[in-house]
Amino acid sequence: MPTTNEDAPLSPEDRARIREGIAAAVLGGTQGLAESLEHDPAGYLRLVDASSVAAEEAGRLLREAVQGARAAGHSWETVGEVLGVSRQAAQQRFAAKAPITEAGGPERRILTPLTAFNEMAALAEAGRDGWHLVGYGALYHEVEASDRPWEHTRRPLAGGGRQRRLEAEGWIPVGEGWFPWRYFKRPLHRDDSGRSDG
């Protein structure tokens, strides 16, 4: 895959902005945390807790970003170069585990291999045939059989306002999101002719 300016490493300024943004989120994400550090020793324990949440979330975002890069067609070698590690180290740390499906209940299938560029077409086809999204990960979506057609959409992870609007329109969130996307589904109703309406 050819390298473009977008593939180049982040500039020092970009890296500084990200670091400052994380620090601001840690300090500003908890009511009164920054102010408590001036006079309350317990504030530092809250700071540790908030920093732990930020580290956990950053780790999750990194895992999902790596899997997104893989889904977009980038090799483990290229991912390793960006992370400053070997291909083997990147693969060992970030390779997705096989999904676990529940025994019993409705039939489930794994749609794979999928990429960020073909997953929505695969979900549209599965949805027309009565399959709906129940899980996902790197290069796959897990779908479950039902007696009706479904539609699926994905939206960039964003504030709760957008999600509330989608839910008001009947969209059901699936999972917690797979950075940078949040997935939704909703059933379609059939009229007497067997056609689906939206």
Rank of each mutant, 00 (worst) to 15 (best):
Y140W: 13
R162Q: 07
G160F: 07
T112L: 11
V82D: 04
V79A: 05
S193E: 15
G68I: 13
P173I: 04
R128Y: 04
V48Y: 09
T115R: 03
R154L: 12
R87G: 12
Q67E: 09
L62K: 15
T30H: 01
R17T: 14
P180H: 08
W131M: 00
V79R: 04
A58W: 02
R109K: 15
W181V: 07
A98P: 04
G21P: 05
R87L: 13
E81C: 05
A55G: 06
R165C: 09
P156V: 08
P12R: 15
L33H: 10
V66L: 06
G80N: 10
Q163I: 08
A168H: 04
A72T: 10
R195D: 15
Y44G: 13
Y140A: 08
S11F: 10
D40I: 00
H39K: 01
R128K: 15
R109T: 13
Y140T: 10
G68N: 15
L62Y: 14
G43R: 01
T3I: 13
A71W: 05
G137V: 11
A138K: 01
E102W: 06
A90I: 00
R60F: 00
M1E: 08
A8W: 12
Y44Q: 12
R182Q: 14
G137M: 12
I172Y: 02
R70W: 05
S196Y: 03
S146V: 03
L188R: 15
Y183Q: 00
A8P: 02
A54K: 06
R162W: 02
I172M: 04
Y140G: 08
V174R: 01
G105L: 08
G170M: 09
A89L: 06
P187S: 14
R148I: 02
T4L: 09
H152T: 11
L10A: 10
A89G: 03
Q31T: 09
E38R: 05
V79N: 01
S52I: 04
A122R: 12
R148D: 03
S146C: 06
V66G: 00
V26I: 15
R60I: 05
S193C: 11
R195S: 12
S146R: 07
Q91S: 11
A71Y: 05
G161Q: 09
A121E: 15
P41D: 00
L114F: 01
P173M: 09
D49I: 10
A121I: 12
G170D: 09
D129I: 00
E77N: 09
G80H: 10
S51I: 00
R109I: 06
S51T: 05
T115D: 05
I172E: 14
E20W: 14
V48K: 08
R128I: 02
A121G: 13
F184M: 11
W131N: 01
D129N: 04
R164N: 14
R15W: 04
V143N: 11
G177T: 01
S86C: 08
A89R: 07
G177W: 00
P41E: 00
E119N: 11
V26K: 14
T101F: 06
S193V: 13
E64R: 09
T112A: 15
N5F: 15
W178E: 14
E169Q: 11
D192A: 09
W178N: 11
G80F: 12
W150A: 01
V174L: 02
G105C: 11
S196I: 02
A72P: 02
A126M: 02
R19Y: 03
G21A: 08
G21L: 06
V26M: 12
L27V: 07
G198A: 14
P106E: 07
A58E: 03
S75C: 01
N5G: 08
I18V: 11
S51A: 03
S75G: 01
